[in-house]
Design a protein around this nucleic acid. Structure first.
Lengths: 117, 117
DNA sequence: GTCGTATATACGATCAAGCATATATAATTC
DNA sequence: GAATTATATATGCTTGATCGTATATACGAC
């Protein structure tokens, strides 16, 4: 990954993107409709923010049939992983973000992720 | 400190503020004129950005005569310190930020900081 | 091919944040 | 007191980011 500190921070500087990243860190991999449901926002909004995270190589995606799964980029430099981990650690205690996790847990008919590349 | 993850990241989301924090982490404590010299920007700009960092309790200041010294807030929560440390770690390798450190090292007549509270 | 679901992108509007200039406040020295 | 240095704040402008709506693309089932 070639991202600079400044670009990483800029990419993190949005509530929707932080909410996505928190979920991805906990779940490992999620498709867009799961994230959309968990955050309770409209789909184009999620899609646009995931695109920003992807442009900055903070997440990577793969298609599986009609679903596109996102996960944290495993090839981040050490300092970037540390920033993300510390941010998610801080976030995990904030009520605003807990709501997303509980809503995801209640989602009906979550697509089954085969985890086959 | 009561800052949220989102507010911390927002406060870090500016090149001038990152440059200030990098210097403060290395130097410990600096007055505004030192930072202004090192960054080579106009004084009101430095002052405004330091004010933003102070509002978010990322730095604290103390007056010593006509100088006002800033340093990192020693009372940050663990996750916030980790984000700052990792960011400064990443920054330390970026050429844009090295320039500030070398310029500071060449500053003539740096005010002597008595370190008396 | 059409239809339905999943996801992405384009567009125009709105809003927040940064900028430089100018000015205000505070301390020091005379 | 006036003058100088150090720092902070107010003002008006501009730029960039986010928003919702509408539309486009991709895949699977039929």
């Amino acid at each position: 990954m070639t991202i600079s500190v400044q670009l990483l921070i800029q990419a993190l500087n949005d509530a929707t993107r932080l909410r996505c990243l928190q979920l991805l860190q906990r779940e490992g991999e999620m498709c867009v409709c799961e994230i959309t449901y968990a955050l309770d926002v409209i789909q184009p909004k999620v899609s646009r923010h995931l695109a920003i995270l992807k442009e900055n190589e903070i997440v990577i995606d793969r298609r599986n049939g009609q679903w596109i799964y996102y996960k944290l980029n495993p090839a981040m430099p050490d300092w970037a992983s540390k920033i993300l981990a510390a941010a998610c650690d801080g976030i995990s205690r904030e009520p605003q973000f807990k709501t997303d996790r509980t809503r995801l847990d209640k989602m009906p008919n979550r697509p089954v992720n085969s985890h086959c590349a």
